[in-house]
Amino acid sequence: MSRRYVISVMSKDIPGIIADITTVIYDLGGDLADLNQSVLGGYFTMILRAEFDGSVTKEELLTRFAEIQSETPIAALIKEVNDVFSKSCGSLPEDTFVVTAQAENRKGLVKCLGDFFYNRKLNVLDLVTTSEKNRYIMIFQVDLSRVDSMKDFRSELGVLGEREEIELVLQHNDIFMATNEVGTALETIIGD
C-alpha cells in the first residue's frame, strides 16, 4: 500500500535547493505529483505532493531533509493525506474571478479583503501582493460560485472600496486568460 504526502519546505534561496529536495524524493522512490514554488524576500518556499511506497514514513522524510547540507537548514513540514490526490488540481472553478485591490500602503489591507471574502464564505484560490513606492497591490483569485447575484456582489465590493479607500476591480478570470494567453483557444477558456 502506498503513502501520500503533502510536503512544504522553506529555506534561504540558494542555487541547488530544488535538486536537493527532489533527490531526497527520488532516492526514497517517491512519485512527484504537483509542485509549486516561490521566492519571497530572498527566501525559497515549495509545496509538493508525492506518493511513496508504504514503508516510507514521515519521520524518515524529515530526517533526510534535515541531512541536506545547506547554508541555512531546510525547514520541512509533512502531512500524510488520503483525499487530496483524488481532487483535480489542474482546472479552476467556472466562476473564478480576479479581484485587484490597490491602496496607499498601511497595515491590515490584506486582512480587510480576507475578512470580506471569509464573511461571504468565498474561497480565495490564490493571492499575490506587491508594493510599488507607497502603493500596495493585492491580486486575489477567488471562487465566486457561491455568489447568487453578481450585481449585489459588485455593489458590496464598491461599498467596501469606498469605505476603506481601496481601489477595487472585479473581473472574470476568463478576461485575463483571453487577453493574455495567446496560445489558448477561446473555446478552451470558456469551456465550449
Binding site: 478576461i175 485575463f176 487577453t179
Partner: peptide, 16 residues
C-alpha cells in the same frame, strides 16, 4: 494565476 503585470495591464485597459 497569470503574472501580476499581465493582470494589472488588463485591469488598466478596462479601467483607464
Amino acid at each position: 494565476m497569470l503574472r501580476s503585470d499581465q493582470i494589472m495591464a488588463t485591469v488598466e485597459m478596462v479601467q483607464k
